[in-house]
Amino acid sequence: MATQAKAMPKIPKFKNKHALEAKQRRYGYLFCLPFIIGAVFFVLYPLVLSVLYSFSDVMVENQRGLVMRNWGFQNYNEIFNIDTSFRENILTSLKDMAINVPVVVIFAFFMASVLNTKFLGRGFARSIMFLPVIISTGVVISLSSGDLAASLMSSGDRFATADSGDAIQVTETFQNMLLQMGLGQGFTDFIISAVGRISEITNLSAVSIVIFIAGLQSISSSIYEAAYIEGATKWEVFWKISLPMISPLILLSIVYTVVDSFTSDSNKVIYQIHQQILGGVNDVSSAMAVIYSLIILAILGVVFLVLSKIVFYQD
């Protein structure tokens, strides 16, 4: 025993086999500490409180702050049976989401594919396409909507009467054409409203374009080379390489767009909830927010379940 210890004096240093792992664990907690504290105090605890608020009457008292009283379902009763505007707003936001998400994702993917090819002024075009992230979020978008001067600038009664008349006629002709093709009223309305939202769509898809460009660039070029050497056409390469490789990002983009369209300030439900909070009504707004979050989570769950079967992961 003694000779062995003499021969290898360094053994005690490695006594703790898991020293590195323990260190890793410690530093992991250290680095994540800000968010762990935040998650406990500003996410989980408020989450519980919010559910509690929704089942009670919340009042602000002068010395005691927020207090809860009168437990029961009265808030839920109010938002479902007494005030119907909440239900209507939820339906509107669901409808908006159903139109926006597929169009945004397809458009963003298409834009990213175009911006990923080599052409003169690509950097410039890219920086312009990312500009909506800056110029149309938050207060700007709520102020820009229905701006009188801007609509006057482009309206029919001020000048260019013929032009705008033509534009309306073109839309009508297009709509009739689609209807005559037997595509059905629903599909035609979808197309028309998607075309009418072009500006909104470009604004919403900026982040998705970023996601897709990042994804397209992360596909290694050797895969493409191998495919072209084997005689694949561009069409096949798109369907058999680009699309499967990027499918996880399509999922990410869909989830992001769904969340974005549900939680942006311009969403009607969010606006309603926010106005209630600003008005000091914390209990009804909590009930609305709880129901709304449940709906969002349910939709995201369905999207995730359906799409995760299609998505291809390389490793």
Binding site: L47, F262, T263, I270, I273, I277, S285, A289, Y292, I296
Partner: peptide, 8 residues
């Protein structure tokens, strides 16, 4: 949605 956590 951020508004869920605003009141608490």
């Amino acid at each position: 949605p951020p508004d869920l956590l605003f009141s608490p």
